[in-house]
C-alpha cells in the first residue's frame, strides 16, 4: 500500500499533473523568491510565523504554502520553530493587547538582520477589529514592518509575491547603502 503511494508520488508530481497557468505562475514565483533570498542571504530564508491576534484565516493560508502545490520548502523557504532561527517574522492579525508583549518579545528574540512581513488586512491597521478596547491596531504599532501583504486572507500566491517584493527591496537597500 505504502509502496504504491510512493510510486504514484514519484510517477506523477502534482505540478505536472495539472499544469494550469496558475500553477506555472506559482512555480515561477517560488523559484524567484528562492534565488533572491540566496542572493541576499547566501542561503535559504527562515520564516517564523507569529499569530498576534488573527482569526486563524491567515494561518490556514500560510499552512497552504507548505502543501504539495506550493511546497515552498523546495526553494529554501522554511518555517522554523523559534524566532532565534528566523530571518523573517510573518505576523498575522490585529495585534491584541493581550498579545502585544509576546509579539515584542518574539521580535527582540529574532537576531539581526531581520525583516517583518505583516500578513492580511488586519495586520495593516487592525482591519475590521480596529477601534476595539482589546486591540492595539496594526503590527507596525508595535514593531517595525518592512512589508504588508493585503488580503483577507491573502492567497498563498499573494504571499509568495509579497516575499519576493520584500527581498527585492532588501536588495535595493543593500545596493544603495
Amino acid at each position: 500500500m505504502r509502496k504504491l503511494l510512493f510510486e504514484s508520488l514519484f510517477r506523477r508530481p502534482f505540478t505536472e499533473k495539472a499544469p494550469s497557468p496558475n500553477d506555472a505562475a506559482v512555480t515561477e514565483l517560488a523559484t524567484a523568491v528562492g534565488h533572491a533570498a540566496r542572493r541576499r542571504l547566501g542561503r535559504s530564508l527562515s520564516i517564523r510565523e507569529v499569530d498576534a491576534g488573527s482569526c486563524n484565516g491567515c494561518e490556514l493560508e500560510i499552512h497552504a504554502l507548505n502543501n504539495a502545490y506550493y511546497d515552498v520548502e523546495r526553494f529554501g523557504l522554511r518555517f522554523v520553530a523559534s524566532p532565534r532561527h528566523a530571518d523573517v517574522l510573518m505576523v498575522t492579525g490585529p495585534v491584541t493587547k493581550n498579545m502585544r508583549e509576546a509579539l515584542q518579545r518574539t521580535y527582540d528574540a529574532t537576531p539581526n538582520p531581520k525583516w517583518v512581513v505583516a500578513i492580511g488586512d488586519c495586520a495593516r491597521d487592525g482591519g475590521c477589529f480596529a477601534g476595539s478596547y482589546a486591540v492595539v491596531g496594526g503590527v507596525s504599532e508595535v514593531i517595525p514592518v518592512d512589508l504588508h501583504i493585503a488580503g483577507c486572507p491573502p492567497t498563498p500566491t499573494a504571499m509568495l509575491q509579497g516575499l519576493l517584493a520584500l527581498l527585492e527591496r532588501v536588495d535595493a537597500g543593500a545596493a544603495t547603502s
Partner: peptide, 11 residues
C-alpha cells in the same frame, strides 16, 4: 487562554 481576545462582541 484569552490572548487573541479582540472584543468582537463590543465591536
Amino acid at each position: 487562554l484569552g490572548y487573541v481576545h479582540k472584543g468582537i462582541e463590543s465591536l
